[in-house]
Every structure is written in C-alpha cells, then in structure tokens.
C-alpha cells in the first residue's frame, strides 16, 4: 500500500477517534439519581428520583463542546411520607399525569476547566418542569472514565461519563403553587444530580 493511500486512512481513523461520543444515561443498575430538598416548618422534605434517561454528546478531546438532554420521569419522584408523596404527584403540585417528564437540555458550556479526566463548567440550557421551560445555568462536574464500562457491565466494553450537578430552582418560576403554601413548603428547591452514562464500543 502506497503512502498516498495510508494518509487518508490515518486521517479517517483520527477523525473517528476524536469524534464526540454519545453517552446513554438509562441506567440498568438503577444507581442514577436526583435528590431534592425543600425546607418546611416541621422538617425538611428530602426525596429522590431514579427514573432517569437521556443522552449526552461528550468529546474527551473537547469537553467544552458537551451537549445533551437528561430526562427525569416525574412519577419516579419519591418522598418517604406516603401522604406527601400522593400530594406531590397530584395536580395540586407536580401533576405527574399531565407533565410526565422533567428535563434539562444543555446547549452550551462556559468557564470550562479540565484537570485530567475531570471537567468542571457552567452548563446553560433549558430546564422544563411542570410544563414551564426556563433557561438556567448550572455548575456541572463531568468525570470521564475511559474503558470503565466493563467494570460496571460485564462483557461490555466502553467508556463511562459521570455527571454531577447541584443547583437551586424556585418552584414559583415553574407555576407550582405560585405565592401559595410558602409557610408550609419552601419555594426554593435544592437539586442534586449524580448520574453515569455509558458509551459502548
């Protein structure tokens, strides 16, 4: 094979290697979760959600170009008190039947800092809750775990991407009982996301 034939092949191989990878966040192990906390007079309300899915496009050579969409099933939000759970899912609060998904679609990253396999940045995108979409910016931490998929899912080679984010939202911005029950349930909700996505090779 002549050199003139090898160069395009090498270029193609490099291009394939450097292409962004698509990570799937549907976690068969059910570890991915979002935790929410709200202040209330008697005690803070702590709950979680594990119905997480979505895809993220991540390029290890260019983490700043990361984009993607994470979806949380509203019905998967759980609190330990059964009555609070029923109220939360009802049409008085989240209306899970009418708004079955809570989503965040990241469109761009800013203030990107990469150290080894860890990237921190501010992700700007559209957060949709209770049928209301708002553009928000949240701090995120991306950890790229090359060739670690087999450690999690035997016989499956590939990479993992762990995303962590912690941010506050105001329920009133999303038309959830605006100006009501503020003495019982804080308008500010503290959200923590810890999720891992897989990209099989």
């Amino acid at each position: 094979m002549k050199l003139i034939h090898i160069i395009p092949l090498l270029s193609l191989a490099t291009a394939v290697y450097a292409a962004p990878q698509t990570f799937d966040f549907k976690d068969p192990k059910g570890v991915n979760n979002a935790i929410f906390k709200l202040d209330a007079p008697l005690e803070s309300i702590n709950g979680s959600a594990n119905g997480i899915s979505g895809t993220v496009s991540f390029d290890p050579e260019n983490p700043g170009a990361t984009t993607g969409k994470i979806v949380v099933t509203t019905a998967s939000l759980t609190v330990p008190n059964p009555m609070q759970n029923t109220h939360m899912q009802s049409d008085k609060w989240l209306d899970a039947a009418k708004y079955p998904e809570i989503t965040f679609e990241a469109k761009s990253l800013a203030s990107v800092k990469t150290d080894g396999n860890v990237t921190t940045a501010d992700a700007t995108g559209t957060f949709t809750l209770h049928g209301v979409s708002k553009e928000i910016t949240v701090p995120v931490k991306l950890t790229y775990l090359k060739d670690k998929l087999s450690a999690r899912v035997p016989n499956l080679n590939g990479d993992l991407l762990v995303i962590r984010a912690n941010f506050l939202i105001n329920r009133e911005d999303f038309d959830i009982n605006k100006g009501q029950y503020e003495d019982k349930v804080s308008p500010t909700i503290d959200l923590s996301l810890a999720i891992a996505g897989a990209c099989a090779k």
Binding site: G30, I35, P80, A151, R152, I195
Partner: peptide, 16 residues
C-alpha cells in the same frame, strides 16, 4: 432512604 456507593462511578445510589 438507603444510600449505597457504586464503586466504579462513585455515585451514591438511592433506594428505599
């Protein structure tokens, strides 16, 4: 709520 650490990703999984 029970939290269990995933050793590969370092994520604390939540179960009830």
């Amino acid at each position: 709520m029970i939290k269990t650490l995933d050793p590969v990703t370092g994520i604390e999984g939540v179960s009830y």
